[in-house]
């Protein structure tokens, strides 16, 4: 293997290898081909709602051979940050995500963690978070998405509520999910490789590809999931490669990047 050969592949989940409960065709086989090449693989996703266990179960049901510890989510990253800072968070996250924070002390909170939790964006909880921040509590955003697609149309993501707290306190949130550099670097930390030896595959030009490329990785954009024609032109520098789907992205990596 040469010095510039790719040693680690990061893979987005939703929109890249599956959509809801359906495999994106060819993804199962492509993952097996990738595994034969001996590269390190990590699945990285911005989730604020689904715990790692739920994500893992879904992938297994779809037939993917994936170990739970190969999945790195924005919830995992938030937990790591909470532990690092040694704080007791007010968790504004969906009840389903709470299991990823098991064992973290939460009484008498001195930090605010915001995920996507419509039930917890009520005025009183927002005020409680606001007053904790005025007393010096840090604000940790699991990610800062503006909105997301729901069955009944577009719906507000956590970003607007994070912005509301930032505005009224004159403070900035620490964002932990994609496209933050810290997120990508933390995901590959255990592999001991340089950013230049990592490649990220995803369907989000800004958060997957742009984010990875900003911290020195290569980015491959797939034309599945939320991809819309022209997305590759919305980021600078452009994606290292644009592939029709995950299978084509794997073929490209195997033939061109592992040398």
């Amino acid at each position: 293997m040469s010095k510039n050969s790719v040693r680690c592949v990061l893979v987005d989940l939703s929109g890249t290898i599956h959509i809801d409960d359906t495999e994106i065709p060819g993804s199962l086989d492509a993952l097996e081909r990738l595994r034969k090449s001996d590269v390190n693989i990590k699945f990285v996703t911005n989730t604020t709602k689904e715990s790692k266990r739920v994500l893992h179960e879904r992938l297994c049901q779809l037939g993917f051979t994936i170990a739970a510890d190969e999945i790195f989510t924005s919830l995992t990253a938030a937990r790591k940050l909470i532990e690092q800072k040694n704080v007791r968070p007010l968790l504004m996250v969906d009840d389903k995500a709470l299991e990823d924070f098991e064992g973290i002390p939460r009484e008498n909170p001195n930090a605010v963690v915001v995920g996507l939790a419509p039930d917890k964006f009520d005025y009183n909880t927002m005020n409680a978070a606001f007053r904790l921040m005025l007393d010096g509590a840090p604000l940790i955003a699991i990610h800062k998405a503006r909105y997301y697609k729901r069955k009944d149309g577009l719906a507000l993501g956590p970003g607007p509520f994070v912005t509301a707290l930032e505005y009224s306190t004159d403070r900035k949130a620490e964002v932990v999910g994609k496209p933050e550099a810290a997120f990508f670097l933390e995901a590959v930390k255990d592999f001991g490789c340089d950013a230049a030896q990592c490649v990220m595959i995803g369907d989000d030009a800004r958060d997957d590809v742009g984010g990875a490329q900003k911290c020195g990785m290569k980015g491959v954009l797939v034309k599945t999931g939320k991809y819309r024609p022209g997305d590759e032109n919305t980021i600078g520098p452009p994606p290292a490669h644009v592939a029709n789907d995950f299978a084509a992205a794997v073929d490209f990596i195997l033939s061109s990047l592992i040398v």
Binding site: Y123, M126, N127, F130, R146, Y147, L156, G157, G159, P160, F161, T163, A164, L165, E166, Y167, S168
Partner: peptide, 14 residues
């Protein structure tokens, strides 16, 4: 307590 500016900023961002 939060004033309207917080929610204005939220909708502007969204």
């Amino acid at each position: 307590v939060l004033d309207v500016g917080a929610y204005k900023a939220a909708l502007e961002y969204a």
